[in-house]
């Protein structure tokens, strides 16, 4: 069947071309930042563009990480994003499990999960002034815990909802079997439900990490000191009244991509679904 064969080939080529175009579109900015971070200022704007630095330099990395406090910003970002992710995933999975498995009495049954999500329905900017006043009152402005608390407040509802839907997809009978086998509800959650929800945990963790790593608005308002600021704020600070330091922005920006990429790379193998095959007969 030569004709059928050809149409399959065309389909496959079509798929590859589409993927290639998507990759170029998404990866070009990353490549361009990476390339610029190693160029001298004059080469960044050269026309025709320099696709690869003709005269590579680490000058901007030196400027950002040695002369300016980008190392501190990076560390702050790391602590804040990791803490937010940890807290959101831990409490999100517990809350999600409860919502997936327990029936709440009366009208609470339908409303409680909606309420949780509804906290995300207003734009974050609306909450900024109240948050600023609250943290100011508590003397927590310019501290990492303040940022972590604020980020967690925004990530937890999503984490809860994501984990809830993962737990709902697991067959209840596995946890019931564990309880009949002698486990408590908590044990069934820890030994059975949680390991099986690993793809959900991975997805939720990546999601929370990316959101809090890249967050700008809340951090901008809640932190003013170098010691408490995060990478996005630090990078934005290199756009000054007099000049925009594209080299330093590129160097810090490219460096900021790396931890997320590493994390995503480590976690992606857990994202694969299908571990629950074989749980129930079929």
């Amino acid at each position: 069947m030569p004709r059928g064969r050809t149409s399959i080939d065309i389909q496959r080529i079509g798929a590859y071309v589409t993927i290639a175009v998507a990759l170029v579109i998404t990866l070009f900015p990353v490549y361009w930042i990476a390339a610029n971070s190693f160029k001298y200022d004059i080469d960044i704007f050269s026309i025709p563009p320099q696709w690869l630095p003709s005269n590579p330099t680490l000058k901007h990395y030196h400027a950002a990480f040695i002369e300016r406090p980008f190392l501190i910003y990076a560390l702050n970002s790391l602590i804040i994003a990791a803490s937010t992710t940890l807290v959101s995933v831990v409490f999100g999975s517990m809350a999600g499990y409860a919502l997936a498995r327990f029936q709440y009495p009366g009208r609470w049954r339908y409303q409680i999960s909606f309420w949780i999500l509804s906290t995300r329905m207003m734009p974050p900017i609306v909450t900024i002034i109240p948050l600023y006043i609250a943290f100011n009152y508590l003397g927590m402005l310019n501290t990492k815990p303040a940022v972590i608390i604020a980020y967690t407040a925004f990530n937890l509802p999503f984490a809860t909802w994501m984990m809830k839907s993962y737990f709902q997809d697991l067959p209840v009978e596995l946890e019931e079997a564990a309880m009949v086998d002698g486990d408590t509800r908590w044990g069934a959650f820890l030994h059975v439900a949680l390991p099986l929800a690993r793809p959900g945990l991975a997805a939720t963790a990546i999601f929370c990490l990316i959101i809090s790593w890249n967050e700008f608005l809340l951090a901008l308002v809640l932190t003013l000191t170098e010691r408490s600021q995060t990478l996005p704020i630090g990078i934005a600070g290199r756009v000054t009244q007099y000049s925009t330091y594209w080299g330093e922005i590129s160097a810090a920006g490219f460096t900021a991509c790396i931890p997320i990429m590493i994390f995503a790379f480590i976690v992606q193998k857990h994202l694969v679904r299908g571990i629950s095959f074989g749980a129930v007969k079929g």
Binding site: P171, E173, L174, E176, A177, A178, M179, V180, D181, G182, D183, T184, V192, P195, L196, I275, S276, F277, G278, A279, V280, K281
Partner: peptide, 20 residues
């Protein structure tokens, strides 16, 4: 009484084996 204290063993219709 909670299931764990009833000391019964159950074979589920779906078997409910722990897949992991």
């Amino acid at each position: 009484v909670l299931p764990k204290y009833r000391d019964v063993a159950m074979v589920f219709q779906s078997y409910a084996l722990y897949p992991h």
